[in-house]
Write a protein that binds this DNA or RNA. Sequence first.
DNA 1: ACTATGTTGGATTGACGCTCCAAAGCTAGC
DNA 2: GCTAGCTTTGGAGCGTCAATCCAACATAGT
Lengths: 225, 225
Amino acid sequence: MATKARRTDALSREVIVEAATQILDTDGEDALTLRALTVRLNTGYGALYHHVENKSDLLAAAAEDVIARAVAGAATDSEPRELLRTVALSLFDAITAHPWAGAQLAREPWRSALLDIYESIGAHLEALGVPEPALFDSAGALVNYILGVAGQNAATARAGAHRTASLAAVAAQWERLDPARYPRLHKAAAQLPEHDDREQFLAGVDLFLAGVEAVHRRGASDRSS
Amino acid sequence: MATKARRTDALSREVIVEAATQILDTDGEDALTLRALTVRLNTGYGALYHHVENKSDLLAAAAEDVIARAVAGAATDSEPRELLRTVALSLFDAITAHPWAGAQLAREPWRSALLDIYESIGAHLEALGVPEPALFDSAGALVNYILGVAGQNAATARAGAHRTASLAAVAAQWERLDPARYPRLHKAAAQLPEHDDREQFLAGVDLFLAGVEAVHRRGASDRSS
DNA sequence: ACTATGTTGGATTGACGCTCCAAAGCTAGC
DNA sequence: GCTAGCTTTGGAGCGTCAATCCAACATAGT
């Protein structure tokens, strides 16, 4: 009777992904190791690898889960511009809540629910009046902006335990910069602590939308240059 | 005489960073291991760690090197809008040539030459007429867009050996998508193989600049909302 | 010559992803 | 109710990695 008791409840891909998500959310990206998973689930490597291809697959599945939920949850009906802002914001919120998902999104964009993001944004841009040939560029630009913020968020989350602490550290770093070489950053350090990530993100989205509307006034005069 | 010959030439941080850059450029991001570095430089771990903090530090230094050169190289005098496009493009080109630098930029944005990027973009935006309070948001938006594209580029470079091959793979994947659920992506698959990353990037930058100019027409009427 | 300081090479450690296999459950056929 | 074949499980072990540690070596100062 030296053998450990075998599990009676079902072990499935969903259970594993859920456990992984919990580890990622509570202890951070680096804490997700297969060893940690075996401990949490009271199982071994073989059982895990029976349900999951490898660690990348697991991470992608967890991120897909989170992102798809965010995109789907933002589907309401109103004017297209407001819809775009809603989709972007719900993505931002999801990534803020699960920074590891943002990192995964930036690391392996072709997997995960990036397709849903593209499709959703493309649809709303089309409704906004963006003509077909420019749709590709516009949607790509907006998605890339979101991905950039996602990566940035993941990075700051990885850096410090609390957002405010690391923000203060960055502000202090900017403060120490040579005012001759970095005049603008040196000055911006003052207003950095009191800034709101979410608002700044939304400001960027609005800048984008303003650009889209400016370029495609009505008749979409020209596209070149 | 069983001991290996000790090196006579100088081993310095610069030499190590340069060797690391070569490995990264020729064999990719995963090929950079400290073991590979010891082999290439005919040395041991101790010597490396004497000049370099750790692997992250080394990667950051290499990326800093590449990025700083790109930002500095794009400094010519013309109208601010053209300057912004030039800076963005030279960054894009640098990241295309060194995808690992793009990944590093997205992974640890507070290090590397991100400061120079911010400062440069901030200066040109200011010259463009963007008022102080909005400068922060505008520069951040543009930088985040660039970072997003950087990460995307690094990801596609990591995926396949050749850009065209992986691009075709993505196109095939989009082609296979359910036209009911992803109508726009399904249709966009056709124009994907013939698209130019660089042009699309520039289109995104222009969209941004159009937004900036639209929002800050002349008197900068309002900033809220 | 001798010491102090700086530099080098490599053995070693601990953690990780992953492979592999034996044992245990489960299901169908008789 | 027994057995054969398939699925699922647990864990030992392998190869690789970043990083530490220490003894050996070099050079400069006195």
